[in-house]
């Protein structure tokens, strides 16, 4: 396993604020790595340092084993796709895609061939002679993608590439990018704040917060075993219960079931969670039914619990709960995640 890029002790500070704090990160070759986190977590700064638009305050960045820390962007041979697309408005789609090739002095005939090949890859060969303004947002984004991969970059960098697209197109483009990555074998670094996008697209997920890496791993690993409360929170875990020995348990809302004190649903777990709770709210939201409860955890702290159940699997006594009802919040052993802190 070789690394296409590597950050060692990289720090980036703007005056007092530290955007990236002593970052150590390996970008594996041929993989799609996602930098995931809320705004201000340093993910975009990290990507822009890799691209060469920002020089780190400290530390080194190597690309393909060569120190690139102070190399200007034009000497890095990386393909970057910007959130705003950043197409050249005065050039046609074909000239946009051929821009990097022209700078590399690829002969006109060969250039035309490569441009059409790359436009074909994103399904837009028929729009080669249009100006970017005549294209929809989704099409512009594809052109930006074709332009970035046309130069055969050593890494493809995507800065929130889907956040300006509408929901349906966004989901479509996820698999589109995955397909293109599979076809080209490119190493991809994707920056996103959308956990679903990261889970669906990544080979490796890097969850960041305040300039630090919180957890790195395959999506399935990070999702099922978040390293800490922040990662759990960010990935949609909602129920946090302190234990008597000082550690923290968490259960996803869709794994938390509401059992009534008398008869229980699905059988009360012998070893799992079976905590008395009081219903505070019970709402219908289309596909799901959401029950909110309060309970006291093992450390004696009052906590809010949320349970979401698909309506079609809902039993009658679950859908019948009302605010004020005394219930049992239940989860099986394997649904309970133990967090470090």
């Amino acid at each position: 396993m070789t690394n296409a890029a590597e950050f060692s002790g990289v720090t980036q500070s703007y005056g007092e604020t530290i955007a990236v704090d002593n970052l150590n990160l390996q970008i594996e070759e041929g993989k799609l790595t996602t930098l995931l986190g809320p705004s201000g977590c340093g993910k975009t700064t990290t990507l822009r340092m890799l691209a060469g638009y920002i020089t780190p305050s400290a530390g080194t960045i190597t690309i393909n084993g060569v120190d690139a820390t102070r190399l200007p962007p034009e000497k890095r041979n990386l393909g970057m796709v910007f959130q705003s697309y950043a197409l050249f408005p005065h050039l046609t789609v074909a000239d946009n895609v051929g821009f990097g090739l022209k700078l590399r002095k690829v002969p006109a005939a060969k250039r035309r061939e490569l441009v059409l090949h790359n436009l074909d890859l994103v399904g837009l060969a028929h729009l080669a002679d249009r100006k970017p303004k005549a294209l929809s947002g989704g099409q512009q984004q594809r052109v930006a993608l074709a332009r970035a991969i046309a130069i055969s970059p050593s890494l493809l960098l995507l800065d929130e590439p889907l956040s300006n697209l509408d929901a349906r197109l966004r989901v479509q483009m996820r698999s589109e990018i995955r397909r293109i990555q599979a076809e080209t074998g490119l190493t991809v670094v994707l920056v996103t704040h959308d956990q679903e996008e990261a889970l669906e697209m990544s080979d490796v997920m890097v969850v960041m917060r305040a300039g630090k890496v919180m957890q790195t791993g395959a999506p399935a690993t990070v999702f099922t075993a978040p390293a800490n409360r922040f990662v759990a929170d960010f990935l949609g875990y909602e129920n946090f219960l302190a234990t008597a020995d000082g550690s923290l348990l968490t259960v996803r809302p869709e794994h938390l079931r509401v059992g009534t004190a008398g008869g229980t649903t699905g059988g009360a777990p012998a070893t799992g969670l079976n905590l008395p709770a009081v219903v505070t709210d019970s709402v219908y939201r289309g596909v799901d039914h959401i029950v909110t409860m309060t309970a006291t955890d093992a450390a004696g702290q009052q906590t809010t619990l949320v349970s979401t159940t698909r309506r079609d699997t809902l039993s009658s006594d679950q859908s019948g709960v009302r605010p004020g009802d005394r219930v049992l919040a239940q989860a099986r052993d394997h649904e309970i995640v133990r967090l470090a802190a």
Binding site: P73, M80, F82
Partner: peptide, 15 residues
Amino acid sequence: ADPAVEEAARGLGAS
């Protein structure tokens, strides 16, 4: 003008 457009040109290899 979007500064990213100029950054894009740099990234594609333009001095």
